[in-house]
């Protein structure tokens, strides 16, 4: 295992996280309350307080390679109970944003999110069957939630056709401008 290199502190990364999240990372004193209350802690590879510590150390590589930010369910329990009033959930959100911009996404979860947004982009609203289809195509996980189909389809809770709204082109343009802006920024 590598030892921590305290002199390799990536100051720009710390500033980027602080600016985008609006949080002062140095106020974290590592009590671990965020980890204690996190519903996803048991499946994390790096606990929330360790993510916070890695940001304090400016260890960008560790932060962006962690799966945890992608498993975070954004329940904000960490933020609600932080004794230093840090909106930790926003920091986790910010880490995802930075990771996405730098091409470091966690494939399965991001595939779901991308599938979801793709249906919104083309229909104006999310389209559940479409999301499932796209997700299966992206991941090859064709068995996903097949057990639920016999429950949902007869109850007509999953419309076969998408709701196409009049303004779907306007929504689509939001995505296009967003993608253009991101490329321009890069």
């Amino acid at each position: 295992m590598d030892s921590i290199n305290l002199r390799a502190r990536d100051e720009a990364f710390i500033r980027e996280v602080e600016k985008e999240s609006g949080q002062n990372i140095s106020t974290c004193y590592q009590c671990g309350n965020c980890t204690a209350g996190c519903p996803c802690g048991p499946v994390y590879d790096l606990q929330v307080n360790q993510i916070m510590r890695a940001i304090q150390l400016g260890d960008k590589k560790t932060v962006l390679e962690a799966a945890s930010p992608w498993l975070c369910v954004s329940c904000s329990t960490c933020s609600a109970r932080c004794p230093n009033d840090i909106d930790v959930a926003r920091v986790m959100d910010t880490v995802r944003h930075i990771g996405r911009r730098e091409g470091k996404t966690k494939y399965v979860i991001n595939a779901f999110w991308d599938s979801f947004l793709q249906t919104v982009r083309f229909c104006g609203r999310s389209y559940e069957l479409g999301i499932m289809a796209l997700f299966m195509l992206r991941t090859g996980r064709f068995y996903t939630d097949l057990d639920l189909a016999p429950r949902m389809l007869p109850k007509k809770k999953m419309p076969y056709l998408p709701h196409l709204i009049r303004g779907k082109a306007a929504v689509s343009r939001i995505f296009k401008r967003f993608n253009d802006m991101q490329q321009y920024d890069d």
Binding site: Q30, C31, G32, N33, T35, A36, C38, G41, P42, L46, Q47, N49, Q50
Partner: peptide, 9 residues
């Protein structure tokens, strides 16, 4: 709670 020394809830 949490054991921050072990990094686990």
């Amino acid at each position: 709670g949490v054991d921050t020394l072990m990094g686990k809830p």
